[in-house]
């Protein structure tokens, strides 16, 4: 990344540009890997790109930045993702 030597509003890409947005979460998506059929709906609909698609199309959730909107759970047709309130149960 080349840095430009001029004072104007130039910004450089970074993950977490607004910080660890996982702190915003009230409900936490919990994935049941046994149930998952790798349809990738959660991956494509995640507004935050925090559903990580792996090489074998299985998925992981990036809790550092997941804002807990619940879209992944809502679009999952086989209910492999459930939303649990943060701090009550893991």
């Amino acid at each position: 990344m080349k840095k430009y030597n001029v004072k104007t509003t130039i910004s450089y890409p970074m993950k977490g540009a607004t910080g660890k947005t996982g702190n915003w979460r009230v409900f936490r998506p919990i994935l049941n890997k046994e149930k998952c059929v790798k349809c990738l709906r959660c991956w494509i609909f995640c507004p935050e790109a925090t559903v990580i698609r792996k090489d074998d199309d299985s998925i992981d959730i990036d809790y550092d930045y997941c804002k807990g909107c619940g879209i992944c759970a809502n679009v999952c047709k086989i209910k492999a993702i459930t939303m649990k309130r943060e701090g009550i149960e893991k």
Binding site: K2, Y4, N5, V6, T8, I10, P13
Partner: peptide, 13 residues
């Protein structure tokens, strides 16, 4: 001093 460049993807403004 700066420019829009696909090899240096800055956001301006």
């Amino acid at each position: 001093l700066w420019n829009l460049d696909i090899n240096n993807p800055i956001t301006f403004g």
